[in-house]
Amino acid sequence: MTDYLIDSPITLAKHIGQSRDLWQLKENDSGERGWQLSAPEIFSALRSPDAMESAKQFFFAPRENIFQFDGNQFRESLPAPEPFALVGVSSCDLTAIAYQDHFFRDDPHYQARRQQALLVGYECLSPCAKGFCPSVDAGPGAREGSADLVLHQLQEDQWLLRVLTDTGARALEGLVLEKAGDAAQTQRHNQIEACIEAFPDDSHIHAGIEAINSNSVAQETWDAAGIQCLSCSGCTTLCPTCSCYGTSDHTTGDTMIRERFWDSCLYDGFQREASQNNPAGAAGDRVRRFWYHKFSREFFQASDNPGPADRYGCVGCGRCEVTCPGVIGVHSMMKKITE
């Protein structure tokens, strides 16, 4: 596909804003960053891992009604959003969306939203505070197919606009742009290499991943982490690849509504059975399970199901490190494993 040069993300936003709602990261009056409906005339230039929330909520809703039953008939409640665009999703979060796309490939609620979305990536030129995307193959360059369009800044007033999908190409129809030459591609390549070089030492992440895969982490390490896990659900809530949900039924009058909501595998009740038996009743076992799901190569699905899930379940955004009150987020935990 052809890549282009563009003077500003705003030029792009104004064009796609004609047919879609635009969402960008914004700072509110208190300085907090999050996704907001946005006018096309602004480009926030915020990087998505600097916001607490990833983009997963756009597709996998924190809470949503699945169906209702009025005593005679079941009625599904599929969402039907208007077309929209997320402008400025960093590579780590794009990789996570691709991972979720695979997990929720047959989920009509997820897909109803996902089909309406245009993803515009924004490649980071310097490392974020807690990130380690290069070590888990998730950035800083956007992975093939993970976005429709990707913005990469070359100069103050010159950006490389990469087109990764047909949807992306269609979104540019009617916009007259100069094709990008080799010089732009080389500059992008060099800038990404420089960004990778600038990441701080994360050998503890590599060593932790190897320890998990060789099954050489002492049970005492997990048990000690279990004491510090408060089961707050912060890690799983903010993790852009976590996809577990629970359901509950509410009845008012003759109508029953089933709601689903984000669940957390760190809760004791997550796997507790009706008999009260719990295969993961010890907090340390739940912490171990969480990290195995993020880092064990046993969860790669390459052999029978090649696709975006053929990778670690962690995209290196570092949000869990920030939000964990128990000091067992990714950096802390991998250091404990390898100490």
């Binding site: 909520q57 996998f60 949503e64 969402p79």
Partner: peptide, 11 residues
Amino acid sequence: MQALHDMDVST
């Protein structure tokens, strides 16, 4: 509660 954009969101 629904996803961010499920309804015809105005702001």
